[in-house]
Design a protein around this nucleic acid. Structure first.
Lengths: 329, 329
DNA sequence: CTGAAAGCGCTTACAG
DNA sequence: CTGAAAGCGCTTACAG
């Protein structure tokens, strides 16, 4: 059975469509008696107005598209949670899509989001290439990048200082006496590039040259431990592993266990994101806090602002990372 | 600037709306030349059809509402991930809402979902009361409950055998010699009730009576460790803690650390969900696998089936829990 | 093979 | 204060 329509409500209480609409939308021109009649009828038949019809008319859907890699990554769960917190207060909803770090899936998801006529978009782009953003600009949908920006384009974004993240990790590991550091990195995205640059630059400043084989890129949707195994099987003997994110660090922790290596005695491990669980892993993980939840908050605030002032300038927010030293290093 | 419309496409290549529509929808009645012309025009102006308009016409939105407590709980992240996997293959999208375990927020989210005219709904109800389900039935939206059912109503659902979960935990803890077990439970929902029943019943069968003060209910959105502290401060001296879910168990682990209690030497801990991280916590957590991802898969399959055969009978799926013994007990 | 027209469920000027 | 009518962006019978 199709859902009740305004027409059903109007018919039930003997008024016109227009009057029913006005009563339900609290317009002032309706007499109290009529209003009561309409509200009662609507209540009785369980009427819920169609956002589709409203959206077609008003041009807004009250839906914000959120496109991330996967909600299984607690980092994004934190971000989405922040977004949700802000949007909820302004009656906006989230249409959630995942790219699984694949360009094709990201493109397809974008199509869906545009079809659904989301009022705005918050996304963590898979690549550091401009295609996706250009498409959004062409379609003139307000959007904000979150977690990762794209170099050379003027957009709004909320990221952390990724260069600094890499630098911070290098400094911390050097302080702990590690020079043979394996870098388990993510692929393609700009944050990964920046963290690598920060890491390498800092290492170099301390006179240490990291050869390319010490930089492993984890293929999308593959457990990071295989990249570790690859390195070990190539004969590398790292004294520390720095991971792009805590998720990978947890996989590394588990991989090291498999290989019988003790952390931090045999090898140190550090990640990025400061996920809740890193506090109680074995051992508690040294990581870098990049303000996950705050990223969500800020990106949602920006998108709301863009909706209010369509002409507003782009906003670039770069949050400061903070080292969280625990026992894995 | 408003997004391009079919009219724009039609105008650009000098055909009628009808023809443009047919060409874009791959209808057979269009000449190859016309079709090519239309597709080209659409491509050039970045035309993306409006799901709103299509939905208004067709009565379907290709969107499934998913209403969970919070995506921050990895259990639900796993479930949603399973749902997404299935829906993606059938071109359905997810509109994600969170109840944060609050009745009011659940009700409001439901309104949103109905307004958006989702084709179907997958939800983990906050309470074991029928209100929510009755509303859905009244609105005749296909829906499936996931993770938690509601007693006394005929609906489709995918859950695990929660009574058995509680029983399994009791048996395992008894085997390990624990009779003074603190149960840190969730509130209101039927799974929590069932797990408690299974737990108490099994304990009783072994001649052990658990007094009510050994059952703590964690208020919504509060860290479970405070319930633990409450118990300890009341002078209880549990030798084991059984938690409704791993999320709570992780919080308990962290709370015990704060209080200087060693796991499992001073006190054993077990959870439910078998989250990925439980493998590498300190110590690795004993838990019960309830097939999170599979729950998502199955619930999505059911909803798809309901959409195909509107008259189909309700399906009740009860998955088997499995003990995962690790070092925390 | 193509186009004019009606209609999906709403809202708001425009009359009265 | 209320109603008839037009229109938001589509799709599909109905003619031709």
């Amino acid at each position: 059975m199709a859902p009740a329509t305004l027409k059903d409500v109007a018919k039930r209480c003997g008024v016109s469509l227009a009057t029913a609409s006005r009563a339900l939308n609290n317009r002032s021109e309706v007499s109290p008696i009529t209003r009561a009649k309409v509200l009662k009828a609507a209540e009785e038949i369980g009427y819920v107005a169609s956002s589709l019809a409203k959206g077609l008319w008003s041009g807004e859907t009250k839906v914000i598209g959120v496109l991330i890699t996967t909600i299984e990554n607690p980092f994004y769960a934190n971000v989405v949670s922040g977004i949700e917190k802000v949007l909820k207060d302004h009656s906006y909803n989230i249409l959630l899509c995942s790219s699984y770090e694949e360009v094709d899936q990201e493109w397809a998801a974008l199509t869906v989001l545009l079809e659904q006529r989301v009022d705005g978009l918050i996304l963590a782009p898979v690549q550091s290439k401009p295609e996706v953003v250009e498409r959004l600009q062409k379609n003139s949908v307000p959007f904000v990048l979150v977690g990762r920006s794209i170099p050379g384009i003027d957009t709004s974004y909320v990221v952390c200082d990724d260069f600094k993240v890499g630098a911070m990790a290098a400094e911390h590991l050097l302080e702990q006496g590690h020079e043979k550091v394996l870098f388990i990195n993510s692929s393609r995205n700009y944050s990964a590039e920046q963290r690598l640059q920060g890491f390498l630059t800092t290492m170099q400043q301390h006179g240490i040259n990291i050869s390319p084989k010490w930089i492993k890129t984890v293929p999308a949707n593959q457990n990071a431990k295989y990249s570790l195994f690859e390195a070990l099987d190539q004969g590398l003997e790292p004294s520390a592993v720095f991971c792009f994110c805590d998720c990978m660090a947890l996989e590394i922790l588990s991989g090291l266990k498999e290989r019988g290596l003790k952390v931090p005695a045999d090898i140190a491990v550090m990640g990025v994101d400061n996920l809740n669980v890193t506090e109680i892993t074995d051992p508690p993980l040294t990581t870098i806090d990049i303000q996950n939840y705050e990223m969500g908050i800020r990106s949602a605030e920006i998108i709301l602002k863009k909706l209010q002032e369509p002409g507003a300038k782009h906003e670039q927010i770069i949050l400061s990372p903070k080292l969280v030293k625990r026992n894995s290093t």
